[in-house]
Amino acid sequence: MTILTTTGLTMQFGSQRALDTVSIEVPNGVTGLVGANGAGKTTLMSVALGLRAPTTGTVTVLGLDPGRDARELRARVGYGPERNVLPEDMPAFDFVKHLAEVRGMPRAEARGRASDVLWLVGLGEERFRPIGTMSTGQRQRVKLAQAIAADPSLVLLDEPTDGLDPVQRDEMLALIKQISRDYQIDVLLSSHLLEEVERVCDSIVALDAGRLVVQGPLETLVGDTQTVVVELVEIDDRPGSVDAVEARLSAAGLNVRRELSQLRVTGDDRRTTLDTIRDAVAAERARLRRIEVGRRSLEDLFIEVPA
């Protein structure tokens, strides 16, 4: 099922075009909204929340029109902003409870859920501490807690790992994955860190300067390729062995691209390619340093697609 759809979405601020005829379909699960700063990620989120009316184009979120059904929609959507938006002298529990109430939870339910959600994000023991005394990692968890406290169907998280160290980032990503997997809450995760999106997301929407770069399930966009990377070592008693292996592979009908002592070998069938490489290396008694299946990362995708 599609949770967010845009058709020809354009957002113009004066002479600046923040979104340029963007047409996307965001499916269930965790979707990464990736792009450099200024790519239009936050603008897309504000349009999805009904806080900005698009210049042209249409948007549908959870089957609702954000402009017309803003109140109904926002009761079902949680939002974790990028900015540090936490009142310093307020205990985390009060903050989460208050926002759960504002998002439509009955008072008694909001109290219980605030406690439960703070335990879920690992702040159970800290829940009565003023937010101003918390670390950056804890504050990001509080932001996540308030976003999911009112049991949303969809959560929009804007750079939720901003300012976190690697360990805290791993924990935050695991939490995001958990809320999607265990509670079936769909997540639209905005980030400019491609590596973290690749780790946690099921699909991606990539924007660049307001334009759609690519979208789709992550497994079809990144992952193993038909290319095998072979790195050989040229040794004194076998001079020219790299040239010889390259020649054998080419003769076998494989596409070989050489970079010094590294060969990037591409064939129709990966298993056959690996067998051919093994035979060629053995026949030339070449010394093998490394052999691995080539992998296309999100970063590669970003480099390839605009080109």
Binding site: A75, V102, R103, G104, R107, D116, A150, Q184
Partner: peptide, 28 residues
């Protein structure tokens, strides 16, 4: 201990949201 769980009850309306902001603002 049920912990965090989905909510299948009836949500409060906008009046409840406004009341919560009024009380939070007053305290602040």
């Amino acid at each position: 201990d049920q912990g965090y769980r989905r909510f299948d009850g009836e949500r409060a309306g906008i009046v409840s949201s406004v009341r919560s902001v009024v009380w939070y603002t007053t305290k602040s």
